[in-house]
Design a protein around this nucleic acid. Structure first.
Lengths: 211, 211
DNA sequence: TAGATTGTTAATCGATTAACAATC
DNA sequence: TAGATTGTTAATCGATTAACAATC
């Protein structure tokens, strides 16, 4: 019997990491159980939405009680795939690349930075948080040898479009794209975009159009 | 007679900067006119959506012809509020703050970085792209004296929550928040979040759950 | 047991897509 | 004029909210 997988909407997926973050903070402050109503007040969403969202993945709560914070936190972690490690490389050792390398929380969540790549020979062999900076000609072999799943692109858009193809061919599963361009790649390569200039323009729109 | 302003949905606003980016690239490649059909093919959205989105703001096209690329680009720029300058300060002179300061495209779009603030006395008075690093005690006066509209927060979450209140009181219009927390501020302060860890978790979700 | 709160169905609301008359 | 393509209304689709029976 073939399981008919219910398709989870991207609206739900967008909210999951936020639930995870709030649950993490609840754990830190020693809260052990929470109702959808109380969580909804903190997060400024409806309790109904929380229950609907969670029930896409199964019933994690208990009638009359609410949700066990620790348990729900772990379950959402599993759903998000951060219950295991993901090997990652950063391409572009500029400020943005360095910022990602130095942000230790990613590693805590299982995103292990195995290498940093740049095209500037002057910084070849230098280290950022103990991780060696390598040149681009090593990239394809490095991806294969180190089972790299994720590539973060913090380089200009023209280079990003070109390198994206290279790393897709090398077999990475996903690209975390900070370049100000869309990447046209085969469907089996996941692309998650962080378009900072678009974010800033949305902010500007809101300034310009608020009552 | 009071104008009944039609509320623009956030889904539309999210797409506007992307239209703007594509139109900019069309201008660079010398394209002078484009139909919604052709643009839809490039952007991988429906032509119907493009026409609906644009018609929230007025009729920019011409039947039988399509849209004048330059004109539409400028009109969307006006809608996004980037037809004028916005003074900005960056709080946090770490790698992420530096990345923003050094990314010259923001300035090209009218986001003028007037100051950089940090709490590390060792870098007081140093310059990043010619802009002086100042200490936090100068912040409130600086915001008022320089008509700062936007504050980018690239500092840890605890500091971000505290400084957000300070700059809101100082009268900034909007906060571009890179800290891994939500900011609870009065409704008249606009907050645009860039939660990198949430972006990375969505990517991880997609890896874990793809067919 | 009584009260609380979930899981889930139904109702509503909003966004996207389709269709086509208007018109350049 | 004939062809192309917009602007806009109508139809569809999907997401959010409300309601409530199930149950801890």
């Amino acid at each position: 019997m073939v399981m008919e997988e219910k398709k989870i909407s991207s609206a739900v997926i967008r909210r999951l990491p936020r639930y995870y973050r709030y649950l993490g903070e609840l754990i830190e402050s020693g809260v052990q159980r929470i109702s959808s109503k109380e969580l909804s007040a903190r997060m400024k969403v409806t309790a109904s939405q929380i229950r609907q969202d969670l029930n896409n993945f199964g019933g994690f709560g208990q009638q009359g009680y609410g949700y066990n914070v620790q348990y729900l936190y772990e379950e959402i972690g599993k759903i998000l795939g951060i219950d295991r490690n993901h090997n990652m490389v950063i391409i572009g050792a500029g400020n943005l690349g360095k910022a990602i390398v130095n942000y230790s929380d990613f590693e805590k969540r299982g995103f292990v930075i195995k290498g940093i790549f740049d095209n500037n020979p002057k910084i070849k062999g230098t280290k950022i948080r103990g991780i060696e900076v390598r040149m681009m000609n090593e990239l394809t072999d490095f991806i294969k040898d180190n089972e790299i799943e994720i590539v973060a692109l913090t380089i200009p858009k023209e280079a990003a479009r070109q390198i994206a193809k290279v790393v897709a061919d090398a077999g990475v599963k996903a690209i975390w794209n900070f370049a100000h361009t869309d990447l046209n790649l085969p469907d089996d390569v996941i692309v998650e975009n962080v378009h900072l200039s678009e974010s800033l323009m949305r902010l500007s729109y809101t300034i310009a159009n608020r009552k």
